[in-house]
Design a binder for these strands. Structure first.
Lengths: 250, 250
DNA sequence: TGGCTCTGAAAGAATATGATTGATTGTGTA
DNA sequence: TACACAATCAATCATATTCTTTCAGAGCCA
């Protein structure tokens, strides 16, 4: 059993049971007591757990993070990485628009030290933005109950008052001819407007959105810089040959 | 059983029962009396409990904390009752404005079956509103980090697009001459505008706000129906004699 | 081969535990 | 109040468990 596998097993057991005894881990991993002890000490140094006499407990910091969001999801890990990369395009002092949606929300922690001003139509973004002490404006509008996204004429109107350095949008599909698309026409309208109000537009998506088409078209591919994860080089070349879209791979 | 597990078990039992005997803990943990004694002493050093002859009681510090939360929960009970009463003024199909703040948030559960449309500047209201499947519009604007209230010119502007049947406002003070007031001028402006956009305005407050004055004046007393809790009859009479305010007692 | 890391085993130190004992406290009775 | 008895306590010691340190062997790579 690889060291990392043991680490993962230990942490999963911990998340499940809150505390584990060394003997339990010896049984679960068929490693020696010494190895488990070393693992526990290493993980403690990494601040992943707290040692206690006879075993370990989950670290308070981890518990807190888990309650915020279930990071065990591999998909989420990918999203976070992608978001981190997207956030690297943001410069100190930028005024940016963050689209509602789970992808852009992951960008927030990486904006903390950039002194940005954020405008968003995502109500769910607010908590995290406040936590990171980021100056934030919310658009007005109708609240879509499932996604908590603000949409509608009020959103369009309030959005029109701003000008952005950059905007970051999520989409449900990107396609060579149809361009970017999303299921809800009202959300599409918000995204479209945000793009026209920005000096530079970024669409953040994972490769699974490639060649997908949703109900409501937003804009052609070349209106935004596309930031994708897990995208093969030949597909990027294809995209870039056929259109003027710039593709950034995370 | 790990030491920490015992500690936790002991503390949980204590919270539940307020006092425990050593023998109970011996039975519950199948540890020896000596061990339990040691545990209790350790926990006492950590200020988690108070030793008494034969067992332990919850520490004074903890009791104090609990009594504070009790107090706040008693306070909350009062607030809920007040909110319930305020909500009884809402009629089926009304379009209403709910001010940001902890008082109006309590009204939400009682609006569930009234098929109302709600406009609010309180980001914290959104979750509960969605939970009760209430059609909701959020005003735009700057998010105040402490209260999550939306304020500023954007808020004023978006608010101006609506007309309300009723609006429900929280205040920090009401005073015979000065009228209603609140600490933040920007919030005051929002409240003032909401009142002018409503056919009927309700201010919801508890008696502790009587004769209190905050930095920013909102409007005179008689511009709203005042809904108060725990208010003595003579005070109500006084108010009603001196002004044209209508006072409703919950 | 030599250096590196990971692992398991072992020994002695440190800690936790349970039992015992005599002291202290609480309780009931006169 | 004083006294006796029971319950509870702190202190101590022996044992058991866990921890740290150390060393040597296995596997791996250049």
């Amino acid at each position: 059993m690889l060291t990392n596998e043991r680490y993962e097993l230990i942490l999963n057991l911990l998340i499940e049971k809150k505390t584990v005894k060394i003997q339990e881990l010896v049984d679960a991993t068929s490693a020696s007591e010494s190895t488990i002890r070393r693992d526990l000490n290493d993980l403690e140094d990494l601040n992943k757990l707290d040692r206690i006499h006879g075993g370990a407990t989950i670290s308070e910091r981890i518990t807190k993070e888990l309650s915020i969001s279930d990071k065990s999801s591999k998909n989420l890990q990918e999203k976070i990485q992608l978001a981190n990369y997207a956030a690297s395009f943001v410069q100190e002092g930028d005024c940016i628009f963050l689209d509602a949606g789970t992808t852009t929300i992951q960008m927030i922690p990486y904006l903390k030290d950039k002194k940005v001003t954020v405008v968003t139509n995502g109500v769910t973004h607010v908590d995290l933005l406040m936590e990171h002490e980021i100056t934030t404006y919310l658009t007005g509008g109708y609240i879509k109950s499932r996604t908590r996204a603000l949409v509608g004429p009020q959103t369009i109107q309030t959005l029109g008052d701003y000008q952005f350095d950059k905007c970051f949008l999520g989409v449900n599909g990107f396609h060579l001819e149809i361009g970017y698309s999303t299921p809800d026409p009202e959300e599409a309208a918000v995204k479209r407007l945000a793009a026209t109000l920005s000096r530079k537009t970024y669409v953040v998506a994972d490769h699974s959105k490639y060649n997908k088409v949703s109900f409501a078209a937003i804009m052609p591919l070349d209106k935004a810089v596309l930031i994708v994860s897990d995208f093969e080089k030949q597909a990027i070349n294809l995209l870039e040959q056929k259109t003027t879209v710039k593709v950034e791979k995370s």
